[in-house]
Design a protein around this nucleic acid. Sequence first.
RNA 1: GCGACCGUAGUCUAGUGGUUAGGAUACCACCCUGCCACGGUGGUGGCCCGGGUUCAAAUCCCGGCGGUCGCACCA
Length: 497
Amino acid sequence: MPRDELQNLAFRRQLFFPTAEIYASKPAGFWEFGPIGVRIRNNIINFWRKELVEKERLLEIKGSVILPKEVFEASGHLRSFNDPVVQCKKCHALFRADKLVEEKIAKHIPESKSIEELNALLAEHKIRCPKCKGELSEARLFNMMMRVLIGATQNQECFLRPETCQNIFLDFPRLYKASREGLPLGIAQAGSSFRNEIAPKQTLLRERELGQMEIEIFFNPDKINEIRNFSEIANYKLRLQRLDRGAIEEISCEQAVKQRVVSGKLIAYWLARLQQFYEKCGIALEKIRFRELSSEERAFYAKETWDFEVLTDLGWIELVACNYRTDYDLKGHSKGSKKDLSAKEEGKAFIPHVFELSAGIDRTFYVVLDQAIRKEKRGKDERLYLALVPQLAPYFVAVFPLVNKNGLPEKAKQVFDLLEDYKFSCLYDKKGSIGRRYARVDEIGVPYAITIDYDTMQDDTVTIRERDTMAQKRAKIAELPEILWKLSVGKLSFAEL
RNA sequence: GCGACCGUAGUCUAGUGGUUAGGAUACCACCCUGCCACGGUGGUGGCCCGGGUUCAAAUCCCGGCGGUCGCACCA
């Protein structure tokens, strides 16, 4: 669905909107979620919790968004998130200093080169602005991380985390020691990260505060093929786009391991679980792929990377980065903190390896909506609705009196209270025409609507309307809780009613 | 950061120097209403911010902020 349609719906129904929008000086890249938007967003996070954290027995934490400088010295962010840039004094264009030198001398510049060395190289080779041939400024560091100063005299230098996983690495030793399961041990976290993007864009797709739901699996690299539930997904087909292949291939997890498409069963298992999760979020399989990243595209610490992507009108959008980070992180923090972060199995100590599934919450939100939005012609009118799966819908059921008189609203309120008692998330509305109320809830993706009419007053039956088909069925009020529950968990389809 | 284009109610939009800034839709109130954005009456709500030019600026100029597209960037 075209982006405009989605953004218009989002702004019209206040799903999300710019932070501090009443101030002209508001910075770009920050977004507020309104009442409907936050329900959908929370549902995404909770569904992730249910399907991955709980079912896979992961340990969830909630870490601080502020971490000390030392953490990022150890993680490499102060080196690698720090890009050396030069600016043209004439046209003010910005360039990566190392890239300019590389182009000029046709030789690779390692990331370890200091600013002084880069400046010497820039001068030595008389490098000028590639666009206007103007004179370049001295190289300086542009850091993607946001700095915060802590303490009464603001003398402690900290940073807003640029990824949520660092907390998980820091917390690993404590959780591991108390763990009764041993390895592999999975730790999960949902929360905000912050990146000082040069050019935030396309609303939720490139933000400066970004929601992440991350899973880090710590495991013994010698036992990457010892996964207890592998048989459950052995025949499940992953949609992989490998480096050396043009097309997306459907390869079973078993075959992927056998043919060494992935490093081991543990990797295949988690790719499968992730793909299944997004399928359940309502993303069509044919729009899904795992794209293998080349060594140039991958982060330097990653041995193997699969980007989970979904096809939209904007092209393939990356929702999740799946990185085999090896022992890079724990090794770094062990060195930085001078603490032993090793694990022990059968008397042998080793640094666990990490496989990471780092999902963007807001990108997922955007793409789930993008895939759910439907526009249908009905005569001369157009109908717009969100075909969200029930788990992600802002409300599960709406309750309406057919007309706002003759005791119908009171009766409808009783039905609403009944359903609330049964813990359904419900919406009650008696204002305006019935058609308008249906349209309003269709637009925010409410799957079912219950309508109380004059027959209800006689025989205690109501109509249940299905959002996608607009079809209606009649049912007894007393049976509603069970019927709705069955619909919500997929034990009954609307057609079978 | 660069370049081009752009910024008028919640949303979409007319207005290119003097308008009570118009419309659609949404929203609110009342009436009507036996199932898909019904109809009627009434109503609330707007020129991104700052400076300049001018007797007069939503309109022209400059700057800021924001947006779209392209480039660059995105360990």
